[in-house]
Design a protein around this nucleic acid. Structure first.
Length: 519
DNA sequence: TCTGCTGCCACTTTTGAATTGT
DNA sequence: AACAATTCAAAAGTGGCAGCAG
């Protein structure tokens, strides 16, 4: 889903965060149980140094817009049904090996261990953060694709959705309201099976501090609201100075403008000098970003951080980890509700039915569990439907206190059929502190694939959809077809482990998965 | 009482099918 | 008949608001 066709000239408008040049030996955490990482610049993979994953550069698109929001204190609405991010996360990638396949994915991790409140027109710490939500990943629907594909145009993650629904069945990224988060982009080299983690998985992580945001259920800062209205085309209906108020007045059949409570509050607060625009007021939001910048590469600089930073930054890095002994490869299946998805991009180039497919690979978010996957033993053996979703499907999520010690998030890697947006549920293994009572286990993983009405519609290739229009009700809020699991099973063969500890040390590297056996 | 969340609303954009024109 | 352009309707994405819950 590379939706932007034109790339800006040069690198204007982009912020680069690259990870080149800093790879240390990764000590695979024993707590991972299954696998760890062993990173080395002298990786076993013999490849052109110019094409190693460490040389990949990522530029944030619409950096200036992001900065505008960042300076005001970016807020992102989260809803039960899921809400897109705005500005949307789009990047330009360079430095890839054009022929190598990569998987691009995003996760969103807590930026700190605070809960915030918007008071006196500024964000203030309001206490300790609530336990983190089950971690999920958003895998770019084009994944896996060749470096040439990724570099050809902007890589857009605009279909990524955020939710505050702890039981979200759609695979949206689950966040806590009034908490600060930091999106991270991960680039993983796909192996020969279009997966990763099987052996010598190379990866890198890119963080743009200006994309940090506070999740809210309704906008708190009127400045952010105005920025959204001004820049988001979908909010065009609210544009025009005080038209929104006038519109409300019209709606309520009144002759006078209605000033909302929030606006009134904002205006009252704004009347206090220096409070709205003062940069110092943003300290609450930005203070921890300083920590983020320690490991954000700018202009190729090494990431640097100290022990204090390590304690303050619960950001995780990717380490490859397998969660299942089964071997999954990319298979496409089709049933009544779910359609065969086009092959990966490079195969599309060779596959006539999809060669001219211009429709982007769109959203289909789902998550997975190793335990469920383990039931998918063969292509023709359909696994039983996923169990009802419940909190028990995830491993316990440690509070920040434990998180600050070490939190590992093992991520069953998700499939990404061509027209699907794939989000991977990212259950967190217990922290060291909690491992005694709940040791990490692959059985903690659960599969739950779910398609929204639009997602089902979107995922159907145009040609098929024209012939077989799917009634939304058939798919809405229904458990995902087990075929999905099968169709995308190769992704399940992999899992990530996000280790906070290692995140502070590695942002790119070569993950070696031990004890890997193909089922 | 206050804060945060949910559901609904009207509005706009997006998308794709159907229609019309060349 | 084939293709391109236009029109139209449905779906999806917005922020705002009222009301509810804790």
């Amino acid at each position: 889903m590379l939706q932007e066709k034109s790339l800006p000239e040069g690198e204007d408008g982009f912020t680069t965060a690259q990870t080149a040049g800093h790879v240390e030996a990764a000590a695979g955490s024993p707590a991972m149980g299954v696998a760890g990482l062993s990173n080395s610049l002298s990786s076993p993979q013999s490849q052109d140094p110019e094409q190693t994953i460490e040389n990949i550069k990522v530029y944030l698109h619409e950096k200036e817009l992001w900065k505008k929001f960042h300076e005001a204190g970016t807020e992102m609405i989260i809803t039960k049904a899921g809400r897109r991010m705005f500005p949307s996360y789009k990047v330009k990638v360079t430095g890839m090996n054009p022929k190598t396949k990569y998987i691009l994915l995003i996760d969103i991790v807590p930026a700190d261990d605070h809960r915030y409140k918007f008071c006196d027109n500024k964000w203030m710490v309001a206490g300790k953060a609530e336990p983190a939500m089950p971690g999920r990943l958003y895998v770019h629907p084009d994944s896996p694709a060749t470096g040439a594909h990724w570099m050809r145009q902007l890589v857009s993650f605009q279909k990524l959705k955020l939710t505050n629904n702890h039981l979200d069945p759609f695979g949206h990224i689950i966040l806590n309201s009034m908490h600060k988060y930091q999106p991270r982009l991960h680039i993983v080299k796909a192996d020969e099976n279009n997966a990763f983690g099987s052996k010598n998985t190379a990866f890198c992580t890119h963080v743009f501090s200006e994309t940090a945001f506070i999740s809210v259920t309704s906008y708190q800062n009127h400045k952010i609201t105005q920025l959204k209205i001004e820049n988001n085309p979908f909010a065009k209906g609210f544009r025009g100075s005080d038209d929104s108020d006038l519109r409300v007045a019209r709606l309520q059949s009144k002759e006078y403008p209605v000033i909302s409570k929030s606006i009134m509050r904002q205006r009252l607060v704004s009347s206090h000098p220096g409070q709205l625009t003062s940069k110092s007021d943003l300290n609450a939001l930005h203070s921890s970003h300083q920590g983020l910048q320690h490991y954000q590469y700018e202009n190729g600089a090494h990431m640097q951080f100290g022990a204090a930073d390590a304690q303050d930054l619960p950001l995780n890095s990717f380490t490859a980890q397998r969660d299942s002994g089964l071997f999954y490869h990319c298979l496409k299946r089709r049933d009544d509700h779910y359609f065969r998805s086009p092959p990966p991009y490079d195969q599309q180039m060779l596959s006539p039915p999809y060669r001219n497919e211009v429709a982007p690979r769109d959203a289909c978010m789902y998550s997975t569990s190793g335990a469920e996957i383990a039931g998918v033993s063969g292509v023709d053996d359909l696994p039983p439907p996923p169990p009802p979703l419940s909190c028990n499907m995830w491993t316990s999520v440690s509070p920040y206190t434990s998180y600050s010690v070490q939190t590992m998030e093992t991520v069953p890697y998700q499939p990404f059929p061509t027209h699907f947006t794939t989000t991977t549920m990212m259950p967190r293994l217990p922290t060291i502190a909690s491992q005694g009572s709940q040791p990490p286990s692959e059985s903690h993983f659960s599969v739950y694939n779910q398609l929204s009405q639009s997602q089902v519609r979107e995922r159907v290739p145009t040609s098929s959809f024209q012939r077989e229009r799917v009634h939304p009700s058939l798919c809405e809020r229904k458990p995902p077809s087990p075929h999905i699991n099968t169709a995308n099973e190769f992704l399940y063969s992999q899992s990530f482990s996000l280790s906070r500890e290692s995140s502070l040390q590695y942002h790119s590297g070569m993950g070696t998965v031990e004890n890997w056996t193909d089922g």
